[in-house]
């Protein structure tokens, strides 16, 4: 039985934790608030915490001036597309290694993990030249392909750790009942595998959404997802904080909300199953 914790201790920890959490969250909160300020209010000094004049102007400006929705659409296509294509390749591979392991399975898994260690910058030059020669620069297809490749090892690994937990005895039982292989897969294993597949999907969409090496280097006006779109606000003459904040808010809000639901998957996926 846990010992009783004194109310004093409870409140001390609560207050301390809230202060730290609010400091860590502050840059995000500040971005949200600034998005609703006028440009003049955004650079008041001393800063105004709450917008003195609430406005939605910035959000409309971001859309009409720089076509936010086009880049949002690009981000969706690239992150969801790369994840779905990756799943089509990763699910069978993880499945096969989890349910029909051989002597080499562990080596194959290790080797897949090691491909993830390759620093992107080490292959920037050839990928850039290949993309240039094949006309893939600044295309959604090219970016989708690259992000699928860089996340494929994580997908296989995550799925493998989930599939391995599916009790294999159930297969034995169904086999005795005379079920054939495809029925086995469709009716027995798939329902049990769906949570793992969903978790993998979620984490990889998040990772692809925020990927900012290949998307910055291989895209321009046309296929630029939100990462590259936001980077265009870095020029000194583009110092419009309220608009930067509005664009940033629109870029991070969807994935931030998804992220809040993915804490467990994040731990598991990013540590390759070593911490659960």
């Amino acid at each position: 039985m846990a010992r009783a914790i004194s109310p004093q201790k409870k409140w001390t920890f609560t207050i301390l934790a809230w202060i730290v959490a609010l400091i860590i969250f502050f840059p995000i909160l500040w971005t949200f608030l600034t998005a609703f300020k006028t440009e003049g209010d955004a650079i008041l000094f001393p800063p105004a915490f709450l917008p003195p004049h609430w406005t939605l102007e910035n959000f409309f400006e971001v859309q009409t001036r720089s076509n936010y929705f086009k880049h949002f659409f690009n981000s969706v296509v690239i992150s969801v597309g790369s994840t779905l294509i990756g799943l089509v390749i990763a699910v069978p591979a993880a499945w096969s290694m989890a349910f029909a392991p051989t002597k080499r399975t562990k080596d194959i898994l290790m080797w897949m993990l090691s491909t993830k260690m390759m620093p992107a910058v080490g292959v920037l030059v050839p990928i850039f030249l290949i993309f240039k020669n094949l006309g893939l620069l600044d295309t959604l297809g090219g970016l989708t392909g690259i992000l699928m490749l860089i996340n494929l090892p994580i997908m296989v690994w995550m799925l493998y750790t989930y599939f391995r937990e599916i009790p294999i005895d159930i297969l034995e039982a169904s086999r005795m009942d005379g079920a054939v292989l495809w029925k086995e897969i469709v009716y027995i294993l798939l329902p049990m595998a769906i949570p793992g597949i969903a978790s993998t999907l979620l984490l990889n969409v998040i990772l692809a959404w925020n990927e900012a090496f290949w998307t910055l280097n291989l895209s321009a006006a046309n296929a630029a997802p939100l990462t590259a779109f936001i980077a265009s606000y870095s020029s000194p003459e583009g110092l419009f904080w309220a608009k930067l904040s509005a664009a940033s808010t629109l870029a991070i809000a969807p994935i931030l909300i998804l992220g809040w639901f993915s804490q467990k998957q994040l731990v598991r996926g990013m540590t390759f199953g070593a911490v659960k």
């Binding site: 609010l22 969250f25 590259a228 980077a231 992220g259």
Partner: peptide, 12 residues
């Protein structure tokens, strides 16, 4: 609140 910065894209 504490986990949120991890989901912010690097450019933002």
């Amino acid at each position: 609140l504490v986990i949120s910065p991890f989901f912010i894209m690097p450019t933002v």
